Amino acid sequence: MKNKPDQNACPATATMALIGGRWKTIILYILSDHTRRFGEIAARMPTISRKVLTEQLKELEADGLISRTQYKEIPPRVDYAMTELGNSLTPILNDIADWGKEKVLGQTL
């Protein structure tokens, strides 16, 4: 785990060290229900550059939240999926999405 927090750190701070920032929570939400290829993730996030998406995916992989599987095919194929640790965030990500739908977008659940 690349961003392993200090044992005495605030739990919220420790969590945000792993999933904070502009893109990581969105990437995790996109992967929470399905294994996806890079292009699929990029298509769901049209405002992120490919360079930044690559960096964010590498960080999430280094922190153990997602896995990357590269297949020896031509053309090359790479899949991204949630790990067990990443999957433990799925209920939280769903709650965030539900809150956003109801409170921010005004949609009924």
Rank of each mutant, 00 (worst) to 15 (best):
D98Q: 04
K103V: 10
R77L: 06
I19L: 00
T25F: 04
I92C: 01
I66R: 14
K58C: 07
S49L: 05
K2N: 06
S32Y: 00
Q7H: 10
L57Y: 08
L31E: 03
T47S: 15
P5V: 00
T13S: 12
T69G: 04
T35W: 04
Y29K: 15
I92T: 07
L93Y: 01
K58D: 06
L57C: 10
A14T: 09
T13D: 14
T13V: 01
Q56A: 07
T13R: 12
L85A: 11
T13K: 12
W99N: 08
M45I: 05
I96A: 08
L60G: 04
I41A: 06
N8T: 09
I27W: 09
S32Q: 10
L65G: 04
F38D: 04
L18F: 02
L28T: 12
S88F: 02
V78E: 14
D98Y: 10
I19W: 03
Y71W: 07
D6V: 05
E59M: 05
L65V: 00
C10T: 11
R68Y: 08
G39N: 10
A62K: 02
Q7W: 15
L60K: 08
G106Y: 03
Q70H: 00
G21M: 08
I66M: 09
T35K: 13
R77K: 15
A14S: 05
Q56W: 13
I66F: 13
L57F: 13
W23K: 04
R22Y: 12
L93M: 14
E40W: 02
L57N: 04
R44F: 05
S88H: 00
T69N: 12
D79L: 13
T54S: 05
T83A: 11
C10D: 15
I66E: 08
F38H: 07
R77G: 04
W99M: 00
D63I: 00
Q56L: 04
I96T: 06
D6H: 10
D79Q: 14
D79S: 14
N8H: 02
E84D: 11
K101A: 01
N8Y: 12
E102N: 12
D79G: 01
A97W: 15
P46E: 11
M1A: 15
